[in-house]
Each structure stands twice: as C-alpha cells, then as structure tokens.
Simulated scan of single mutants.
Amino acid sequence: MGRLRWNADKQYRWRFGTGRWWIFFAGGVAVVALVKGFALTHIFPHQEERSLPVHVVVEEEQQLPVAASKAESPAQIRKGQSDKNVSTGDKLSSYDRLRVQVYLATDKRMEKLPIELYVRGVLAAEMPIEFELEALKAQAIAARTYIYRRLYAGENDGLPPNAANADVTDSVKHQVYLSLNELFSRWKGEQKKVNLNKLNQAVEETKGQIITYGNEPIQAAFFSTSNGFTENAADYWSMDLPYLRSVASPWDKDLSPRYKEITTFKLSDAAERLGVKANEIRSMRVIETTEGKRVKEVAIGKKRFSGREVREKLGLASSQFNWTIEQEFISITTYGFGHGVGMSQWGANGMAKEGSTAEQIISHYYTGTQVEQASKLPIPGSS
C-alpha cells in the first residue's frame, strides 16, 4: 500500500490531536471494517462446520520470508496435538491445521496457507475456469492428493537452494499455483465473483477428499490432452504403478485445441538437438509403440531413443508423433499435449459434459482407486 505524503505547503495541515484528524481517522477505520466484512462474506464463503475458520484465511495472506521456519509436519499434527481458532476457541481438526509453504519463483518469496486454499490456487492455475464443475472437482481432488502425499512423505525434490523450507514451488516441477495476489487480480467485476465462487464450490464440495490405492495416497499424475489414450506410467517413467494404466480417452480429439500440432525444424537444428547427423534423421524409424499408441522407441542412425527423449529434446507436445521430410526441413505432427500419464484434463471435461461425476472421472483415469477422506487414513509409519 502506498504511503501518504504530508505536504507542508498545503493550506490544511494534519496535526495529531485536532478534531479534524480524529474525524478522518474514525471514518477510515469504518471504511476498513466495511471492506474487510465484504471480503469475508463475498470472497471467502462460509465453509461447513469444523472447517477452517474464514478469518484465518486473511491472517494467512501475510507473506513470509524465504527463511521462515517450516510449518508443523503432518505427522506432528496427526499425533493428537490440537490448536484452537483464536476467535471462537473451537479446536481445529488435524486436517484443517495443515499448512502448505509455496515458494513463488518469480517473486522469490514464500506463501504459507491452509491446504484447501493451496488446492484452490492450483485449480485456478491448472484447469480453465470454463470447464464443467465436475471436471474442476476431479482436478481439485487430484491436486489435493498430490500435495497431501508429498507432505506426508516429506518429499523435498525440485526445490531451489534458497527455498529449502518450502513444501513445493509454484511451477510445473510440482503443480502450477496462482498466488493469492494473482488470483484476486485475475478477473474483474461480476466475472471475478462468479469465477471465485465456482472455484470455491469445486474445492468445498471435495474438501479433504484424496485418491487412494491400497489405503495410501496415489501419485496423482495429470496432463492436458490425450491422443485418444492415456499412457502406462512404466512406458513413460521408470516406475510401474498399478493405478496409472493406459485407458481410452476419446473426448480430447473433439474438445481440445491442442489435440494436434505441427512443428517444423531445419534438419540441421533437429540433428543438433538429438546429437546425430542431419542425414541420419532422413532414415529415422519407429521401432516400437506403447499401449497408449505413443512412440516407445525410435532408431536414428546407430542410436536409439525413447519417444520421451525425442519429445523432450525437440520440445514436442507429445510422444505420439509422425513426420515428413522435404528438402532440408522436417515437419513433426504430434497428437495430444503432455506426458499422457494419469488424468487427461480435457478428457475429464468431456466426461463431465456427458454427465459423469468427479468420482467417476477419477475412477476412469486412475485404475482401481478410491476417493476417501484424508482424515480416515492411518498415520504413515504407525503400526
């Protein structure tokens, strides 16, 4: 907030103790109270009983320095420690006491906030607000599962050296997240109210819900657009997870604007990125495809590459691709956008348009999983 500057040359000067000063002071306090009351009742709607008290949200908006101490771990909270709502004296649940510390890479600062508000920030950043409510709810459950699992496992991969106390960053290394400031300045007027209400509804109607397999939170991978199928985790990453299996996702083709893309390179540029000779690219061929219809392995000269390697080295949208070569140029056509593992966001929206619920969407994309309340899970490491 900008500072008011007192100009000694003005005809009217402000002096402490004058009647006019106290009148304006009292008026300012009244305006602040009215604005704060409006924000609490319109921007942060009341949540169900035993949910995080609304006023705590405002307290959590303060920005913490990067060197701030780490919040209590979930394990500490789950051991029976309790905290109280300073306004009402009511005990908060263990789940409501969870805090997420997000390192905002661009601003180089930390934002600490309740887990449900973190989920809202991820939802706003990761999925278009125009999507169906049930698709947004499915995304909220997946985002909540990701951070809940990470907190309990105590994972700290992907954090920069100057953010060792953070839980996650706001980038694609973890989950993209919109800070509180960004979220509240993203829309204007009536559209802001409508969109915030929609985000709040998606988060509140799934409060505390996470995806489990074998009574444990899953690796809730998700991506933008499928090529018509999702990918086995083992075919893209070096891990075989029973709930990340290839399933059909036919909705993306008709809905997603990123279903098909064509990227053109000079042969010399493509060769340099791949570390091969330009003439060898002319004889590039697919050796094997995956269950998800993507390229598993290609041969270029004497070298072999996984489809993922080609995608990442050339910056392609997907690992399903074909190509044509004309003179000194190669044009590569990709289908789908993203790694292809887990839930397709555009596919989820397609399912929602056809009447599927969030739980049905989750069940389709995460094989053999359940949606349940985090509070019902056993404490990790307990017997």
Rank of each mutant, 00 (worst) to 15 (best):
R311S: 14
G368R: 08
L316E: 07
L377R: 00
K253G: 12
G342Y: 01
F305S: 09
Q320A: 12
T357S: 15
T333K: 07
D269H: 08
M284I: 08
K266S: 14
G347K: 01
G336N: 01
A299S: 09
E280R: 07
F321S: 01
M284V: 08
Y335Q: 11
N349Y: 00
A317P: 00
E359W: 05
G307C: 08
H339A: 04
S356I: 00
T289S: 13
K266N: 14
G342I: 00
S256A: 07
E372L: 05
F329N: 11
Y259Q: 09
D269A: 12
K266T: 15
F265K: 02
G338T: 00
A352I: 07
G340E: 10
K303D: 03
T290W: 04
G275N: 09
Q360K: 09
V298T: 01
F337N: 15
H364L: 09
R294M: 10
E291Y: 13
N279V: 13
K313R: 15
W323T: 06
I361T: 03
D254I: 07
I325F: 10
R311W: 02
Q360M: 06
M343E: 03
M351A: 10
R282F: 12
I332D: 10
E272R: 11
F329Q: 14
L316S: 11
S319M: 14
E291Q: 15
D254S: 15
R282I: 07
V341I: 13
A270R: 11
E280D: 14
S344G: 08
A271Y: 04
E359G: 06
G368A: 07
V295R: 09
G350T: 04
K260N: 05
H364Y: 02
S256R: 05
K277R: 15
K376G: 06
N349P: 00
G275M: 02
K260R: 13
Y335W: 10
E312G: 09
E372Q: 15
L377K: 11
E272K: 14
E272Q: 10
G301N: 09
M284Q: 08
A271L: 01
F337T: 09
R311G: 11
G275W: 14
G338N: 05
E328I: 04
E261L: 12
R258A: 13
S283Y: 13
S375P: 03
Y335L: 08
E359M: 08
Q327G: 03
A352R: 02
E354Y: 13
I300C: 02
